[in-house]
Amino acid sequence: MDTDDIRVAVLLIEGTNNEGEVYLAFKRLGAEPEFVHLKQLMHEKDIFDYQCLMIPGGFSAGDYIRAGAIFAARMKSTLCKKLIEFAKNGYPVGGICNGFQVLVELGLLPAFDSVMSNYPQAALAINDSSRFECRPTLLKHESKGNCIFTKKIPYQEVVLMPSAHAEGKFLFPLEKKDEYLQYLIDNDQVVFRYVGPQGDYAGYPWNPNGSIHNIASICSPEGNVFGMMPHPERVFYGFTHPDWTRVHKENGDGKAVFESVLDYIRRKF
């Protein structure tokens, strides 16, 4: 299908506040994004009117209970079957920051044994620093080709994308930590890991939250559901990089994420 036929639903509820840049990222690349409130998908609109579902960042439902928990519970109670069908058919579902938290709470990630697990299999817990961590972060691309959102980023390339979150520490249940981490690696589900300036898997402050295995982003075993804590939409242009006056990059590192998913949709549908 052509780029200008690709409709992207940028999903909102109360408290979502990063929708503008996600919308613009798709718009600038020639696709047809649209802001869609969750309640609209219950009545007047259908998820299958779109080829891509994006859950942007923010503080949905005030981050009450746990970040993303209320958004996820509401999605599950209203959209569950359609959402499973949507993901099963290979349509891309992306979550950035709060959106990643929603996908994990929903069970759409890491989704080891089915498209959507009944209960979460991972958590994005409070940062080790117990603070909101907000700064540029360096990420090493670790997907060997499974993730459809990052196909245009070379394997092991280090990119810069800003992080801004208080609950981003990726965790597995303690008793299953090693087993689950091995699944994640074996299934090529690890997409980005936090690194230091030498490309090493450094601790705080390079890993802003204390995530196991320095995980910043994962995808589903099929690669079409993707979540990341840092914000690719905030570095769409080179001039939004903090070192732009010295480096003068034309494209921001985040642009490739949106290009990759559009490229996938163009080929597949």
């Binding site: 209970i65 746990r66 709470e105 209960y119 979460p120 299999q121 958590a123 817990a125 965790l171």
Partner: peptide, 10 residues
């Protein structure tokens, strides 16, 4: 608790 209040992972 299962549907919303607790995340059984942590």
């Amino acid at each position: 608790c299962k549907k919303l209040l607790a995340n059984p992972v942590i």
